[in-house]
Design a protein around this nucleic acid. Structure first.
Lengths: 187, 187
DNA sequence: GTCTATAGCTAGATAGAC
DNA sequence: GTCTATCTAGCTATAGAC
């Protein structure tokens, strides 16, 4: 077994970066090769199904990150519910680099008919809502209220990312996260 | 002057449809030709700068539609402020076909470095906020409150479109529009 | 496991007949 | 103004040496 020239994790970071800024169709293997430091043929060795498999790997990579850094923070019973919420929101800030980064799922979903991604996005959003509903209930909202707030949180995070990018104004994202926090913690 | 086989407006409708569902990079001239009923070379006769000019034309076409169907409805002083707001929101419903359609600006902006679109999106969002701030002031909010609600409206419309598509659930979009209406008309 | 070289194809774009 | 035919560049993907 010849050693890997580039670590799996570093490859995923490079792939993520390119897909995130160019989208799926807008990304070429040339760019992916340059970003990872491997040649095209070497990328095919790691990902035999090519570009699609690379995108899927990015999907899984980000999904895992969200699980470990956002959902687990929300669930961590070693902290008070208030701190759990704040840690979860901090995870969101890091995921999107304070609004500077686009949602990778959105970047990858804008493409002709790969239903795999559609299904993953659907279940990802469903879990997102479930997790935020849970922390809402812990924070003494009724289940109905908590579910509404969870959906609203998802809508506002996604919407604020678009408006932040469109208006080139980071404060839109940060203000939205503050509003979300206040909605959960105040009253 | 030989007569046009396809009317300008019908071409724009076809181009819009394809760009909207595939994005800029994901759209091929073959698809654009099929959707418009013209051959590729004929499309180049109408749009000498090719694909980019076609996308720009779609941009202008949608911008005009928004002006005429949303912003003018908000400004129309022949109606009460309440009716003007409702007509504007109905324009939004039609623009996105009740949540079934993606935001065309978003579909076109996911591409490598065409700054023209960035600038148009920026000014489009700025005007959107100005128009909704104006109707908010007419509805007796303070300028500060009105500006906040206008920004929030843009965020929620964009976010709800993404969540609606991601979860394949039209009611997300409709409920968001109802919430927006209530925020302006109630209290 | 990584590389050079290249196959096979489709993209965007043009030439020129009608 | 629209068409058929074609060019060239770039794409995804593979073969085979090391």
């Amino acid at each position: 077994m010849r050693p890997q020239k580039v670590l799996d994790n570093d490859i995923l970071i490079g792939l993520t970066k390119v897909f995130r800024s160019n989208g799926y169709e807008g990304t070429s293997l040339k760019e992916l090769a340059e970003a990872t430091g491997l040649k095209k043929a070497s990328l095919y060795h790691r990902f035999p199904n090519g570009k699609q498999e690379m995108a899927e790997a990015v999907f899984t990579y980000i999904n895992t990150w969200v699980q470990e850094n956002i959902f687990q923070a929300l669930q961590n019973e070693q902290h008070t519910p208030e701190v759990r919420l704040q840690n979860g929101l901090d995870g969101i800030r890091r995921l999107y680099d304070n609004g500077k980064e686009v949602c990778i799922f959105r970047a990858l979903s804008m493409q002709t008919g790969l239903e795999l991604f559609e299904q993953q996005i659907n279940s990802g959003m469903t879990q997102w809502i479930a997790e935020f509903t849970e922390i809402g209930i812990v924070l003494d909202f009724t289940p109905t209220e908590a579910a509404q707030h969870a959906l609203q949180t998802l809508i506002e995070v996604q919407g604020s990312l678009i408006v932040t990018k469109g208006m080139d104004n980071i404060s839109v994202f940060e203000n939205t996260l503050k509003n979300i926090e206040n909605r959960y913690l105040n009253t």
